[in-house]
Amino acid sequence: MHEIAITTFGYLHDAPPSAHITLDLRTHFRDPHVDPALRSLTAHDAAVRDAVHTTPGIPAVIDAAAAAVRAYLAGPSDGPVTVAVGCAGGRHRAASVGIALADALTDTTGQPVTLVHRDLGRPVVDRPNLLAGLPPAVPEHLRPWTVPWSSYAPVDITPPELQPGAGLDASVADGWAEPATDPAALPDLAERRAAALIPFQADAQGRPLHPGGRTGKTGRDLGRWGENRAVDSIVVAGTGPYQRVLLIRRADCGAWALPGGMVEPGESDPAALVRELAEETGVDLDGFTPRVLARTPVDDPRQSDHAWVATTAALFRLPDVVPAISGDDAVDAAWFPFATGPHTLDELDAALADLGGVLYPAHRALMATALAHLILTAHDD
């Protein structure tokens, strides 16, 4: 029996989840957000669903998406079929279409359908002020490096500790930064490209280029030019309503995040996963074999056009929680509710808010990927 997993999301929050079929509803269909009467509502409200479904083209998109899913189901594979439906904030168009698509597929395929609204419960995005104090947002159609943009003027984000002189010298001596100051003069660029987790190109000057396209930022706020390889451990314990996920509170920004960090030179990703987890939580999972869920660039606030983070995110499953003690770059470590369901991430947000905390934004998409995997494999437990 096939399984169908639908995830709705907002592009303004985190990176899109990976899927066999992705529907981008941002630019072609009316946005209920512009109506003050609908802005604070969600797809759980009939007024929002009515506004979306009466938009010309939406019924046809739902029918076409359902037909595409049925085509995937007709193939010889027994694997799940995944669908991602995105809009700007994830509260109106994407969620409404996701609900309708799930209903249509339930009625026409006879296959089990799961629906996860990744961002429906998140606050309304104040779009004019979304990037206040940050470099201007790069329009989606201008992000690809292949698209000419003669007036592109990225903002240099290089902090004092990476500026040439005493700051950079101290960072190099501490072991976390390389001494190179010019990304166009990296003698080992070919080796970096060959070893990259995510393939990337270089520009005419020889500078490494972010595989996701323009960021609006230049310079470096990371240890290395080009790809900075990282790992993130998603440790889930227990089953059913007692399922928990292990998080750490970062010392640099105070947000709760997945345990992880940079891969050291010569270190394998599996070894780095175990080492970082032990350093930040005291949990030793040496000998465990995790399941790799994603190898992807991370929407890290420190990224620029010429320096970025790419991570291997892997899932560890434990029968029950184990003691966790913070260390290294973490100031706290704790287990939080992570029972699979349509409101899992919203419930996690509420649990963190009770502690005066928030989830590290760059890790939300990774946790949504883990949640979708847990839903699809629940019958294997």
Rank of each mutant, 00 (worst) to 15 (best):
L101E: 01
G98C: 11
A102D: 03
A102K: 00
I99W: 08
P123Q: 04
G121M: 06
R122C: 07
P112L: 04
R91L: 09
A104G: 14
G89Y: 01
A88M: 09
I99N: 04
A102N: 02
L120K: 08
R118M: 08
S96H: 03
A104P: 10
T109H: 13
A88P: 00
P123K: 07
S96K: 00
L105N: 00
A88N: 02
P123Y: 03
L120E: 08
G90H: 07
G90S: 09
L115D: 01
V97H: 05
A102Q: 01
Q111A: 14
G98Y: 11
V113I: 15
P123I: 06
G90Y: 06
A100C: 12
C87H: 00
G98S: 05
S96C: 09
R122V: 08
T114R: 07
A94C: 13
G90A: 09
A104L: 15
A94I: 06
A100F: 12
G89F: 06
L105E: 02
R118G: 02
D103K: 14
R118H: 05
S96M: 05
T108K: 13
A102V: 04
T106N: 11
D119A: 03
S96E: 03
A104N: 13
R122I: 08
A95P: 03
D107G: 10
H92Q: 09
L120R: 09
R122L: 14
A100T: 13
A100N: 08
T108S: 15
S96Y: 01
G90C: 08
A104W: 04
P123F: 03
Q111R: 15
G89L: 10
G121S: 11
A95M: 12
V124G: 12
R91H: 09
G110C: 07
G98M: 08
D107M: 10
L101N: 01
A102W: 02
D103R: 15
D119I: 01
R93K: 08
L120H: 05
G89R: 01
V113S: 11
A94Y: 03
H117E: 04
C87F: 01
R122F: 10
R122S: 10
V124I: 12
P112C: 07
L101K: 01
G110M: 11
P112F: 05
R122Y: 10
L120G: 03
V124W: 11
G121V: 03
V97E: 05
L115E: 03
V97D: 06
G121W: 04
T108P: 14
D119G: 03
V125G: 03
V97M: 12
R91Y: 04
V113P: 05
V116M: 10
G86Y: 01
T108W: 14
T106A: 14
V124E: 12
L115F: 13
